[in-house]
């Protein structure tokens, strides 16, 4: 029973982390309809920013977090205004934007490596605390914070998308860009906001992941592959579906190592990615149109 509880808790933690990445990725995909792979590096940038502000510059932790979130939003807006929007204005196809985003990912990852070095960094904010016993599973206080804050974040994101004007505009653009502009929604404004909000979500993910794990220059690629897989499992066009898909991925990976050696965690994620891309590219909860011929 305790193995089962431990794997459940681990699945929940992994799922929360993947969902934090997937939610921003899917939000940006919804309004822009291209795969912003550089979203992974936004997470890494946030983690390294927090490290610079808090661990290197010695700024107060909560103020460091605030600065990190502001810079994350600015970083997202810069990517959109500086690279993606000019490309879109030139009628670049979605695949060009996808390739450009992989270019940004590689570019920024290597900049991080030059600036901070290839060795791992640690943000020592919370002392490694004694794990708590939770139905026979060990969980650290920080991991509880990760799970709780992601759940709170997802609920507020849901209400933001449902209840606010901007959220409704975003859903309208995601649903039908032409129709949305006919009823007077400014597409560029909505797209800019989705980049800012999506990148702030990446910033939150980077902060939580940075506190829980070591910082590595290439962490962004690994995270975006997981977040992307979670989004594909659930249905990339919808934020709640992507979040659910990420939790499914987290559980599948962890229950999977009940039967398989733990080295196969990656293989489980990739097998799911392949199965969904090939047999159900719209995901479990996605709509059929615009994916298949």
């Amino acid at each position: 029973m305790s193995i089962f509880s431990q794997l459940t808790v681990n699945g929940l933690i992994a799922g929360s982390i993947y969902a934090l990445v997937a939610s921003g990725f899917s939000l940006i995909y919804g309004t822009n309809k291209f795969m912003h792979f550089a979203h992974g590096v936004s997470v890494a940038v946030a983690a390294y920013l927090l490290y610079s502000f808090f661990s290197l510059a010695g700024i107060n932790f909560y103020f460091s977090v605030l600065l990190t979130l502001i810079f994350s939003g600015v970083f997202g807006l810069l990517m959109y205004r500086g690279i993606y929007l000019p490309l879109q204005n030139k009628k670049a196809s979605n695949v060009i934007l996808l390739i450009a985003s992989i270019g940004i990912l590689i570019l920024v990852e290597n900049l991080i490596q030059i600036i901070y070095g290839a060795d791992v960094k640690v943000i020592n904010f919370i002392e490694v605390a004694q794990g708590l016993n939770f139905f026979g599973a060990i969980i650290t206080p920080l991991q509880i914070v990760i799970i709780l804050s992601s759940v709170i974040l997802f609920v507020s994101l849901y209400f933001f998308m449902k209840k606010t004007r901007l959220g409704r505009d975003m859903r309208a653009v995601a649903d039908n860009k032409e129709l949305a502009s006919i009823v007077g929604i400014n597409y560029k404004r909505v797209a800019s906001y989705s980049f800012i909000i999506g990148s702030v979500l990446a910033g939150i993910a980077g902060i939580l992941i940075g506190l829980e794990q070591n910082l590595r220059p290439l962490m962004g690629t690994d995270l975006i592959i997981r977040g992307f897989t979670g989004a594909v499992i659930g249905g990339i066009t919808s934020v709640p579906a992507s979040i659910l898909g990420s939790y499914i991925l987290g559980f599948a990976e962890n229950y999977g190592i009940w039967f398989l050696p733990s080295g196969y965690k990656d293989a489980i994620a990739f097998a799911l990615l392949l199965i969904f891309l090939l047999f159900r590219p719209r995901g479990l909860f996605g709509l059929k149109r615009e994916v298949e011929k």
Partner: peptide, 19 residues
């Protein structure tokens, strides 16, 4: 991947490379 179009084909081939 013969049923996939546009960027989903691109993604499936990228996924293949990861795998």
């Amino acid at each position: 991947t013969k049923k996939l179009k546009g960027d989903y084909f691109a993604l499936a081939t990228l996924g293949f490379a990861f795998i």
